[in-house]
Every structure is written in C-alpha cells, then in structure tokens.
Design a protein around this nucleic acid. Structure first.
Lengths: 119, 119
DNA sequence: TCGGTAACCGAAAAATTATTCGGTATTGAG
DNA sequence: CTCAATACCGAATAATTTTTCGGTTACCGA
C-alpha cells in the first residue's frame, strides 16, 4: 500500500473533494454510471483511453468512499453492477458543470482566440 | 519543455476543464484571488503547504489559459497583481461548489461513519 | 478437458506532477 | 556597496499516479 509523504490539508474542502473524485478517470466513471453503463465490462468498453485496470482501481476507491455501491450476483456469467449512492448523486451536478465548462471553453478557444491560447 | 506521451481526449469537457484548473494548487489560487489575495507574495503567505515555486508556475499557466490576468507596475517594491478574467469568474461557482461538497463530506464522515470510511 | 467471458488483483515500470535548491533582476534604504 | 523585498525562472530530484503485464477465480458450453 502506498504511503503518502507530503502532508495534506484535510480542513480544505477542495483538497478533500479532489481526493474523493479528482483522479484521472473518476469523473468519467461517475458520468458513465449516470449514463447507464453500470457493469465494469461496459465501462471498460465505454471509456476507451483508460485501461481496465485503472478503472477497476478507481471504482474500488469510489466504493470505499461511499460514492458508488456494488451489487454482485454469483451466476454465470459473473454480473456486477455499480450504482451511485445518495452521496454519489450529490457529486453529479458538479461533474456536469465541470463537463459543460470544459466544452464551453473549447468553443471559446475555437471562436475567440484561434492561436493565442492553445490548451 | 515537457512533452506528453499518453494521448488525451480533447473532445471530453471533463478532460479539458481538469487540464485548465485541475492541478493541485490551481483551485486554491483562484479561491485566494477571489478572497482578495492578489499579489504573489500574499498568495505565498496565504497558501501554506505549497512552495512559492509551484504557485508561480500554476499562476503562469492560469494566465496562459486566460483565467487570470496580470498587472505589473515597475515601481518599488515590485508590485504584481493577478485578477480573475471574465472567463475566470465563470469557474468560481464550480470551485465554490467543490469546496462546499468537500466540507460537507467531512461532516458526513464525522457524523455518519466514524470508522467505516477513512478518507 | 479446453476455451471463453466477466471481474478482479499484485508488482514493476513508466509517465506525470510537484518540490527543492539555487539562481536572476529591479529598486530603495542604510 | 551591501542588504532586503518582490517577482520570477531552470534544472535536478522526489513524490505521486497511471499503465503494463501477467496472473487468479468462477462457471458454462462444446
């Protein structure tokens, strides 16, 4: 297990929130679940660009943080489903706004400043 | 200059937004500017836990992204002031909500689950 | 028994981001 | 002339996060 070396300010809301859902693929995973991709295999196919491994890991962390819940059946084929908890649902408006902001910014770059800001 | 090796999905709003203001100290810097700490030296004193170097770097990136603007006077002592641009102000509601969410989550952990979720 | 699907996990390596350290420049005061 | 304050920057290193690779387990169908 990884042992952090630099201190964190756990009084700071931003720091806490970023720890819970600020990893590279966590917002995408939550968005995917919201859009109906509940099974790990579906998410692996949906979120191309991420390796299955990292999605599994971040999903596990989201579960540990109480953001998503997990249902498993023991039949065949294995069937696992992740769903947003009530707590998880409180994050979604933020993620939706982040997504919107990013798309608007892309528009803005294309329209207002073709070369001055590159991203 | 650093050359990225893994591809990014620049169609994804989340990816774009995280690139613009998702670095470790950027939300704190923007929050500090909003709260009236406009000078680099003030931010250095305000945001303890971050080294001046990283704050300077992330401030420069925010400027390059058009999120903050910079005013410099040539007098003595040197006086530099960073301010939010119109574009930068559009991020603040998101950062405020992220901060709120984090603080609420801290409350939630303290009240609802003294030991099950640790952060 | 062998092959295929689904869901995982551990460990090493690579990539990325942040920190540390030691500079530069300007100006004014003593 | 030296020192202090403010605002920076470059390069090496360290810390952190993500990726790669190669497993495991369970079960069904041929």
């Amino acid at each position: 297990m990884y042992q952090r070396k630099t201190p964190e300010d756990l009084e700071c809301g931003i720091t806490i929130a970023m720890k819970v859902f600020g990893a590279k693929w966590k917002p995408c995973l939550l968005d995917a679940i919201q859009r109906g991709f509940r099974r790990p295999s579906e998410m692996h196919r949906e979120i191309k660009g991420a390796t299955p491994r990292v999605l599994d890991m971040q999903l596990r962390e989201l579960e540990a943080s109480g953001i998503v819940g997990k249902c498993q059946s023991t039949g065949f084929p294995l069937y696992t489903e992740y769903t947003l908890t009530d707590l998880g649902r409180t994050i979604m408006p933020i993620i939706d706004r982040i997504n919107e902001w990013g798309l608007n910014y892309k528009e803005f770059l294309a329209e207002e400043s073709p070369q001055s800001i590159s991203l």
